[in-house]
Computed example of a mutant assay.
Amino acid sequence: MSVASRVVGNWGSAVLLAFSAFLLAGCSVESVDAPAAKTGGETTGAVEASAGEKRIQVDGSSTVAKVAAAVQEEFTKKFADTKVALKVTGTGTGFKEMIAGRIDIANASRPVKDSEKADCQQAGIELVELKIALDGLTVCVNRENDWLDTITVAQLKKIWAPGSTVKTWKDVDPAWPDVPLSLFGPGEESGTFDYFTEVINGKEDQITENYSASADDNVTITGIAGEKGGMGFFGCAYYFSNRDKVKVLKISPTDSVADGVEPTVESVRSGAYKPLSRPLFIYVKKSSLAKPEVLDFAKYFLNEGQAQVGTVGYVPLEEAELATVNAALESAVSGAGK
């Protein structure tokens, strides 16, 4: 296992404490930092629904889980006989669980990879891709950081690239202080990790080994807040709900800090926040749409649930795009269960 795929030091114990926020949201969270799914076999034991209970199995992205938990809470008020069992293990592990036949919905902060799609097809699983929101992947530093408000993509690459020799902020820019850099972020099963490494470092999965990784974005925020030289990245909703703990940086796609743009609803929706604006998805197993509770949940997410997208801090889809996604769901329903 690479350094980037494990939690360093004592962060592992902090995961369980920080993730209690999901429980307060009324969501059934079954595990955090769970190991990769084993292949083969159907869901058994504790994850099986009790007699007469309708149950939807969901796993995947921690970024999407923030809105999925909020949508689940409202959904179960309307559909009290249905339980939405939400696990948070990262986008990559969510797709592994889908391939293994253990879940109905995979939350994803990146599009499905061709290799994952091929594995699903080999397992006889057809995916229905539903875009549910927009996100601005956000880079934050400690609130005591008073030497920068904007960082360029080139400077981010200097810090986060594999083999980086940067140890202090001064190593990045001689005008910055000789304060040690402490880096925090998601692990290699995360879609956020995949997206960041591709757009910043130029190649997916390539990153410095000198950082503390966790599947829980709340742990990343705690790490940044605890180190004067701290820096990390996560979905914008986690920043919007933790403004008092960390400081957001403007991102410049050029070498000029004058071109820096802060992640806001407007900059993410317009695409001005470059290159870290991205879509968020849920992937529904097509055969699961034959179950009324799964179809109801997917429809709710794309309609009433859009109010929760904005409430937790992501960017809701505009009406025209939402209509297109709903049409894709309706089209898939006609072939569900086949």
Rank of each mutant, 00 (worst) to 15 (best):
Q57C: 02
R278Q: 04
S20F: 13
S182V: 12
R143L: 08
C120N: 13
L322G: 10
K245D: 03
L23Q: 13
E48R: 14
V312F: 10
W160C: 11
N210T: 12
S288A: 14
P186I: 05
Q155G: 02
R269A: 15
Q121D: 15
Y283R: 11
G305I: 11
E129Y: 03
D81C: 04
V265P: 01
N326P: 12
K203R: 13
W169V: 01
V315C: 12
Y211M: 08
A215F: 13
S182Y: 06
G337P: 07
I125Y: 01
E266G: 04
K87A: 12
V246Q: 13
L317A: 04
G12C: 07
W160G: 02
K54T: 02
S267H: 07
D194Y: 13
K38D: 07
T220Y: 04
V58K: 04
Q57H: 13
V153L: 14
S5N: 13
A133G: 01
V128F: 06
F240Y: 14
V71Y: 08
K291M: 03
V139Q: 02
E53P: 02
S50I: 10
V315Q: 02
E74T: 05
D296G: 00
G40Y: 15
L317H: 03
P177W: 03
A225H: 06
I221P: 05
Y314F: 14
T264Y: 07
L295Q: 10
V88L: 12
S13G: 09
E204S: 14
G229N: 07
A34E: 04
V312T: 09
G40R: 15
Y300L: 04
L317R: 08
A118L: 14
G26R: 04
A49H: 09
C140P: 07
L86Q: 01
A328H: 12
V268A: 09
T264E: 08
A290T: 01
N303F: 01
P177L: 00
S331V: 10
G305N: 06
R269I: 14
F234I: 06
K158H: 05
T63R: 05
A34I: 05
I224V: 15
K291G: 00
M1S: 14
F19N: 14
